[in-house]
Design a protein around this nucleic acid. Structure first.
Lengths: 252, 252
DNA sequence: ATGCGCCAATTGGTCAGGCCAGTTGACCAG
DNA sequence: CTGGTCAACTGGCCTGACCAATTGGCGCAT
């Protein structure tokens, strides 16, 4: 295999270099970068090239360009890379563990401020989920609605967003492949039952119960997944990552 | 009313226009765009401006620029908004509430699996934070390291990422302006003390204590913020900008 | 001494024109 | 028909310049 002579365009190299300096902290958050003209000189490139690189960083949300003032570092980390090439993402087990910890806390909180309208939201998601066990798309959408719905009960947009984002990570290419094997009408029926238990606990204002029910749900979900995972990849270590899958045991 | 004067930077206007043509299907997927020189002429702007606009679209993954060949439409829809334009609708208070719920749970979990190396991570962040109370950038970096460090103790990459992302949201332009007013050596010293309480509880394996300490920390942080928030907006409308005041009232 | 307004240095925004290098397709020799 | 060559086209990058917004300091008036 011959490698396709990578001759990266200059402005990308410059962007990478600056991005690295920001990530490493060499350019602190809030700090002003040297002027475009100075950057061009220091990097031995022309100003247009520097500008193009800076525009890339601006689009990525790393820097803030203010006319007449300067260029400022906004944050260190690209919260979302081009999404297409997003981090080698975390493994499915890590994700489920994280969801267990976070969503248990949210369910607990939601039980403390449940109102009829919020419960109605969950009920709607439940009926949609149990009603369409043969339509994978519909079930997943309803599943998502249920989980974000719990966050909605708390009435906090950030929680809703975070919950949704974590749910959506199951759509990562790697995750997706396996999902088709372990997701089926049977597992979904179990999931609906577990959802209903969560809903009932929240409706009853039972914080501890809601937390426990959510933990059961995500633990079971993890178990269902790991079973088909074992079949699929018996023996192989999860993506060759050094991270021990054992860490995935929930101890909350 | 005077016309909006359209002061947006040119390359952004050009990018928007081309993006629109792609979205509307006027430029089909796979089709080649006119040459940069032609685009410049048709849009009555210079070629560098067209180039900058095209680089924006390339970073967004809408087009593929091939040297010597041309520019091709890759897909119609921007899968994810460019982060900079990402709805920041959530208010600072909502963010702090969400962090309280989530990070309390993480701290609780961390207390259950604390190991010397993890504690060392927190200690390092603490010393860096207390050591540089006069360097805003250093303190914020250390602050971030402390919070993500707790997630690191649990050993879950997803938790680390989520914690970091929530922390970084304080860098939103709206949040930032106020931060400079309520953040100072004094408030930071308080924050360090609260951090230390969290660290001690985790080191002692006291789950309930860690949870409580984290709650205290984020509640106090919210309080400090809300005080200066009141001062700042007591009457003056910041620079005549039509900023919406805090949308999120906290209901914890 | 203090507060206000003006001005100039600095910095990003845009333009014009030019040269180089890679791509592509037509054309021609074998 | 096959292969190679070449010229037109296209993006990549540079130089140098001017415009516009910002900002900090200087000087004037109070």
């Amino acid at each position: 295999m011959f490698s396709p002579v990578e001759s990266r365009r200059l402005y990308r190299q410059v962007a990478d270099q600056i991005r690295l300096m920001i990530a490493s902290g060499e350019l602190a958050v809030g700090q002003r970068l040297p002027a475009e003209r100075d950057l061009a000189e220091q990097l031995s490139v022309s100003r247009p090239t520097v500008r193009e690189a800076l525009i890339v960083l601006e689009v990525e949300g790393l820097v803030n360009i203010r006319m007449g003032s300067g260029i400022y570092v906004v944050r260190q980390h690209a919260a979302n890379a081009p999404a297409s090439e997003r981090e080698p993402v975390e493994g499915p087990f890590e994700l489920l563990q994280a969801r267990a910890i976070i969503e248990c806390a949210i369910a607990e909180e939601a039980a403390g401020c449940a109102e009829p309208e919020g419960i109605a939201l969950l009920d709607d998601a439940l009926t949609r989920m149990s009603g369409g066990v043969n339509d994978a798309g519909a079930v997943i959408a309803a599943d998502r609605a249920f989980h974000t719905g719990i966050a909605a009960i708390v009435g906090n947009a950030t929680l809703i967003r975070v919950t949704g984002e974590m749910f959506d990570m199951r759509m990562s290419p790697y995750f997706e492949k396996l999902a088709s094997h372990f997701e089926g009408p049977m597992t979904w029926r179990s999931a609906v039952d577990e959802h209903r238990a969560i809903r009932d606990a929240i409706a009853a204002g039972d914080a501890a119960g809601a937390k426990a029910a959510m933990r059961v749900h995500l633990t079971m979900s993890q178990k269902r997944f790991s079973e088909s995972f074992g079949e699929e990849f018996s023996g192989e270590e999860e993506r060759g990552r050094s991270r021990r899958p054992a860490k995935g045991t929930i101890k909350t």
